[in-house]
Each structure stands twice: as C-alpha cells, then as structure tokens.
C-alpha cells in the first residue's frame, strides 16, 4: 500500500480521534472532580448525536449550529441527573456507583431505541464530500471541522478550569473536597456543575461525530467503552491525556484497519486497554491517584 494512502488514513483517524478524545475529556472531568465513573457517558454522547440529527431534520441546522443547543440541553440533563441520582452515590462503594450508572446507561440507550428505532440516521451537510489538499494529504472537510471544533471546545474547557474563578473553585474541590467545604465552597453545586459540563462535552462530541458517522442507539456502549479506553490510556483525571489518548486510539484503530481487517480494529484498542490497565493502571499520562 502506498505511503500516501497510509498517511491519509492515519490523518483522518487522528482527526476522528480528537472527537473521541473530547468525549473522553468529559468522562475524565467528571471522574477527576467527583470520582464518579460515568458508565452512561457513551449513551449521553449518542443522545447528543440524535439531538444534532433532530435539529438537522427539523430545522436544517448544521451540526455546528447544534453544538451550543445540544450542549446546553445536555448540561441541564447532566445537572438534573446529578441532583436526582449521582449525588447520592458520591462516597458510596465503587461498585454501587458503577452499577447504578450501568442502570442509567440501560435506560438512556433503550430510551433512545424506543424513541428513534434501531436504524442508522445521519446528517447530510452540503460540504460532506469536500476535501482539503495539503501536500500529499487529502483531508475530508468534515473531519477537519470536527477535529478542529473538538480542539476548540477542549481549549474552552481548559480555559474555564484555569482562568475563571468558578473553574478554580471546581479544581479546589477536586484536589481536596474537605478543604473546599471548610472554606465554604458549595461543593454539591460544583459537583452538579461538573457533571453537567461532562455531559455537555459528551453531547458536543456527539454533534461533531454526526459529521463523520451515522448514528444508531447501539453505538452507545461502544462509545462508553472507547471513552474508558481513552481515559485510562490518558489517565483518569488528566485533561491533556484524554485528548492525546483519543488521537492515539483514533490512529491505532485507523492503522489497524489497514493491517488487519477493518472490523477487527477495535480489538486493537481493547488490547491496548488491557495492556495499559495491567502495566500502568493510572494511565500513560496520569499520576497515581490517592
């Protein structure tokens, strides 16, 4: 296979990986702050994808236009989910958190299945078949937009945590929950905010994903697992690690699609996951927690 082709496949894999990475970033943020493992993350992301599809079908909106609307809606959903459910699980035994969110994942995924049916649905943008030519590279416009937007959203999230007072408060909460309580931070509300943000980011990643693939409810568990794989490779709680892990998985899967059969590509990410869990349980970029 000529080198240019491999390069092209790798580049588009990396761009898709950025979107994976953004979704994983949401998972990572939630875990980093409240130590809750959101097993329904892929489900939230797929809900975001359906949001983009609905807006496209109903209003002819571009997925990029859908981004703020879906982001806001899922922020609210995440906030409510935290108030109604997740809040009670903070500090509970790990397996209880995990199993409750497995339950949430079942409800969301099957809810989507009931609402939209099992068939794949997609968004058709006018620039679907455009491409940029950069040297030997021929990049799909949709992938470039999706990957670029993913970086922008991630940068925005990063700026929020680093530059705003609210973001600093959330980080204080993540570092030392008791200390944050002592100095009078509204820890419960900050947790809800974080859960909302994590869900919003997953939903936004979902919107961007509709530029690249069609959506059906059964994608959700795969995305949840991909999110975990990425976050564990990048280290739970590490933001840059999530993006880097996303690109790594995107690349690895794309290249595995060439070397092996395309349908075998996620085997590679599971193999990587097993390897990372066993060799470096806190991830390639993460620090040991606690």
């Amino acid at each position: 296979m000529p080198f240019e082709v491999i390069l092209n496949i790798a580049a588009s894999g990396g761009l898709t990986g950025l979107v994976y990475g953004l979704a994983a970033l949401g998972l990572s943020v939630i875990f980093g702050v409240s130590r809750v493992v959101n097993f329904a993350h892929g489900e939230v992301m797929v809900a975001g994808m359906f949001g983009a599809v609905l807006l496209a079908d109903g209003l002819g909106a571009d997925p990029l236009v859908a981004v703020p609307i879906v982001g806001l809606a899922l922020f609210g959903t995440g906030w409510l989910m935290h108030r109604g459910l997740v809040r009670e699980l903070i500090g509970a035994p790990e397996h209880r958190q995990f199993l409750a969110l497995v339950g949430v994942a079942m409800v969301v995924m099957n809810g989507l299945l009931m609402a939209f049916g099992p068939d794949a649905r997609g968004v058709r943008v006018p620039y679907a078949f455009d491409a940029y030519e950069i040297g030997p590279l021929l990049l799909d416009k949709v992938r470039v937009i999706a990957g670029g937007a993913a970086i922008l959203v991630a940068a925005g999230l990063f700026a929020f945590f680093r530059l705003t007072a609210l973001g600093t408060a959330v980080r204080a909460c993540a570092d030392n929950q008791l200390g944050a309580r002592v100095v009078g931070l509204p820890v419960e509300r900050l947790y809800a905010l974080t859960f909302g943000l994590g869900c919003a980011v997953a939903g936004i990643a979902g919107c961007l994903m509709t530029l690249i693939v069609d959506v059906h409810p059964q994608l959700a568990p795969d995305y949840t697992l991909a999110g975990f794989t990425i976050v564990i490779i990048g280290g739970l709680g590490s933001a840059t690690g999530a993006l880097a892990g996303g690109v790594l998985i995107g690349l690895a899967e794309a290249l595995a699609g060439i070397v092996l059969m395309p349908s075998m590509k996620s085997m590679v990410s599971f193999a990587v996951l097993i390897l990372v869990l066993v060799v470096r349980p806190h991830g390639l970029f993460g620090r040991p927690a606690r």
Binding site: G103, V104, A105, V107, M109, L113
Partner: peptide, 14 residues
C-alpha cells in the same frame, strides 16, 4: 417497543 423491557430493567437496577 423493543427497548422497553431493558428500560424497565435499567430503572429497576437504579
């Protein structure tokens, strides 16, 4: 409604 049974199971689990 193919997803209903699983939804009920999910609610029950939660």
């Amino acid at each position: 409604l193919p997803g209903l049974k699983q939804t009920v199971y999910g609610v029950l689990l939660v």
